[in-house]
Design a binder for these strands. Structure first.
Length: 488
RNA sequence: GGUCGGAUGGCCGAGUGGCUAGGCAGUGGUCUGCAAAACCAUCUACACCGGUUCGAAUCCGGUUCCGACCUCCA
């Protein structure tokens, strides 16, 4: 098996990936809170870790991939005793909170399907694991790291830090955090500002609530991931992923909870994808550049020049390294779209190349070069650059400038299939002209037109060409005759 | 304010102490009745100021600007 290196936020370094069990990998990724339409910010971790999921399987691992759905309404902020995101939305729409959660879960799944994101092995709901979360709180209390105030349970970060290291993931010092915390008018029940809620007592108007040993309430913000990863992957598992914005406090708190409950920090490798920007700005509702996935797919947002196929979004994300920020703009997406079409045209071309006795160009190094890049912390942009070098090779074979043997053609077909289809999960966006009726009709039209051209009746020939162009059919005149295709 | 990260050619985006990243656009060419498409070739770079070095875009220091987190957030 090849040596895969991944960047571990915990150590701040690229590390050789060695799973706890040699043949299998356990992976947990933070999924969406389902209170609104899926947006670009959801696409990046989904695609980043989908690519990792696919790659680990290609490497021969048995992978259990858990990605949760957060359908429990956590509080909007710490000082607030009132609403949560799902509950607020439910009130606004006069729906049950679970109707809201279910509706947006379905929308999320639809977007993931369009982006060709594979289903995780398990997709647990936070609301379905209240019991596990309560049990975990009990363990934390029993171990002396939780305390109750007025029906709410808090995690005692200061006490925890005496015997453990709070801040190991985000490299924060608890002393700095205690110093820097602003006075918040002393509304909180917490002993220290750095403490966080494990269980929150539900105020009368809070609609999402469950019974517990401490009265009706709802679980804290960070608990579900600890409880569910532990349940399905064990107290110690291989990879925990999510967006960089979750490093603190969410993932830091998860580590603390797992250590406090199980004396085990949970994941061995922590991986974080970077954020996206739109036109150089952070995406946010207040900035007017908040674009949902469906708006990208149908082009309905005013900032978009056109619709972008889900595969263009996927390809565009893969053209950047997952730990870099990536900036969305119409120019960049249109460039990606053209690149993607070029790639798939070359794959099509490869199937049409007739093999020669011997190759006169060496393509044997391509598989290793791609693997090396992928093994270097999933450097998908470098893999793509190699694949585009391959596009040049394929095209020059078509032009008769190079030859490829049958063996080499197979090698390239396998390589492209492995990377483009299986690991990157890309699908062709070329329109297929596979309707028999239209093909018969078009070959008649093209035949007619070539007669016109032979008779030098350029005016009529051009009229046909222009007319077809208007209905999105493009005629391509080559020296071997004319072909046609749907325009993009 | 604290912690951390970034600044690469017209746009996006890799990488690295000396050797072409790649995509898109541009330019030149092939092909064509013309055009389009396609294909081939190719130019423009490493924020600023110092330092280390035979050599730095790459290492070090400083400056400016940008971003993330510190509060729900992918």
């Amino acid at each position: 098996m090849q040596t895969l290196k991944i960047y571990n936020t915990l150590s701040g370094n690229k590390e050789v990936f060695e799973p706890i069990n040699p043949d299998s990998v356990s992976m947990y990724v933070c999924g969406p809170t389902v209170y609104g339409e899926g947006h670009l910010g959801h696409a990046r971790p989904a695609i980043t870790f989908d690519t990792l999921f696919r790659y680990l399987k290609i490497l021969g691992y048995k992978v259990r991939y858990v990605r949760n759905i957060t359908d429990v309404g956590h509080l909007l902020n710490d000082a607030d005793d009132g609403g949560d995101k799902i509950g607020e939305k439910a009130k606004a729409l006069q729906l049950e909170p679970m109707e809201v959660a279910h509706y947006y879960t379905k929308k999320y799944h639809e977007s993931m399907y369009k982006l060709n994101v594979e289903n995780p092995s398990i997709e647990p709901l936070a609301s379905g694991h209240i019991i596990e979360q309560i049990e975990m709180i009990k363990k934390i209390i029993d171990n002396g790291f939780g305390y109750e105030v007025n029906g709410s349970i808090y995690f005692d970060v200061v006490k925890y830090n005496e015997s453990n290291e709070y801040g190991m993931l985000s490299r924060r010092k608890i002393e700095d955090m205690l110093e820097n915390t602003r006075e918040l008018d002393g509304q909180s029940d917490k002993k220290n500002q750095v403490d966080f809620a494990l269980w929150k007592k539900a105020s009368p108007e809070h609609i999402m609530r469950w019974p517990s040993p401490w009265g009706d309430g709802f679980p804290g913000w960070h608990l579900e991931c600890s409880a569910m990863s532990c349940k399905y992957l064990g107290e110690e598992f291989d990879i925990h992923g999510g967006g960089m914005d979750l490093v603190f406090p969410h993932h830091e708190a998860e580590i603390a909870q797992c250590c406090a409950a199980n004396n085990n920090k949970g994941a061995k490798y922590w991986m974080h994808n970077n954020m996206i920007t739109i036109g150089g700005q952070k995406m946010g509702k207040s900035l007017g550049n908040f674009i949902t996935l469906n708006e990208f797919f149908n082009g309905s947002h005013e900032k978009l020049d056109q619709a972008y196929h889900p595969m263009v979004i996927r390809f565009f994300l893969l053209q950047a390294h997952y730990r870099s920020t990536i900036d969305f703009s119409n120019d960049a997406l249109q460039a990606a779209e053209k690149g993607l079409i070029r790639l798939f045209n070359a794959i099509k071309t490869l199937n049409e190349i007739s093999p020669k006795e011997n190759s006169n160009i060496d393509v044997s190094s391509f598989p290793n070069k791609c693997d090396d890049a992928m093994n270097d912390d999933l450097n998908t942009p470098i893999v793509l650059s190699h694949l585009f070098d391959l596009v040049k090779v394929i095209n020059s074979c078509k032009e008769g400038k190079h030859d490829l043997s049958a063996n080499d053609i197979d090698l390239l077909k396998n390589l492209l299939n492995k990377y483009v289809t299986e690991i990157f999960g890309l699908q062709s966006i070329l329109k297929e002209n596979n309707s028999t009726d239209i093909n018969t009709l078009m070959s008649f039209v093209l035949d007619l037109r070539s007669q016109l051209k032979e008779n030098k009746d350029w005016a009529t020939a051009d009229k046909i060409r222009d007319g077809l162009n208007d209905i999105n059919i493009e005629i391509k005149d080559t020296k071997d005759g004319s072909t046609w295709d749907y325009k993009k």
